[in-house]
Computed example of a mutant assay.
Amino acid sequence: MVAFGAMQLTTGEEKLPSLLLGFAKLMLLWKLLPDGKDSVFYNIHTRRAKHPQQFKDDVQALFSLLKAGKLKPAVADRLPLDQAAEAHRRIDSAAVLGKIVLVNEH
C-alpha cells in the first residue's frame, strides 16, 4: 500500500489533527490485518537527508520504471518554464488534477 500527499492541508480542506488521526487509524488497522504485510512512512525529504545513497537508488529505480512504461504519472499540463508562476497559482488554487511539468524550451 502506498499513500502520499497532503494536498488537503494546503487547500484548507483538512487540518493537521484530522490528517494525523486518519494516518493513525490507517496504521493501526493495517497492522491488525492477518496477512503478514507491514507498512512504513516514507518521507522523501528525510529519506534524502538520512540515506542519500538509498534515496539515489530509489530515484533511479523510479526512473527505470517510468522509462519502461510501468508508471503512468498523472500529468495535468506541460508549461514553458517562464510560466512557473502560473503553475504555482494553479497548484495553490487546487485547480490541478495531476502534476504540471515545466519544460525548458531553449
Rank of each mutant, 00 (worst) to 15 (best):
A3W: 02
A3M: 07
F4E: 10
G5K: 04
A6K: 11
A6G: 14
A6R: 13
Q8E: 14
Q8K: 13
L9W: 11
L9M: 13
T11C: 02
T11K: 01
E13S: 09
K15H: 07
K15M: 09
P17Q: 08
L20N: 00
L21K: 11
A24C: 00
K25W: 06
L26M: 11
L26C: 05
L28C: 00
L29F: 13
L29E: 14
W30A: 09
D35T: 14
D35C: 08
S39C: 09
F41I: 03
Y42L: 10
N43D: 11
T46P: 05
R47I: 05
P52W: 03
Q53I: 09
K56S: 02
V59S: 06
L62I: 15
S64F: 04
L66W: 13
K67Y: 09
G69M: 06
L71H: 04
L71F: 07
L71P: 03
K72G: 00
K72D: 01
K72E: 02
K72V: 03
P73I: 10
A74P: 12
V75L: 05
V75N: 07
R78A: 08
R78Y: 13
L79C: 02
A84K: 08
A87E: 14
H88Q: 08
R89T: 12
R90Y: 13
I91A: 12
V101R: 10
L102K: 06
V103L: 07
N104F: 15
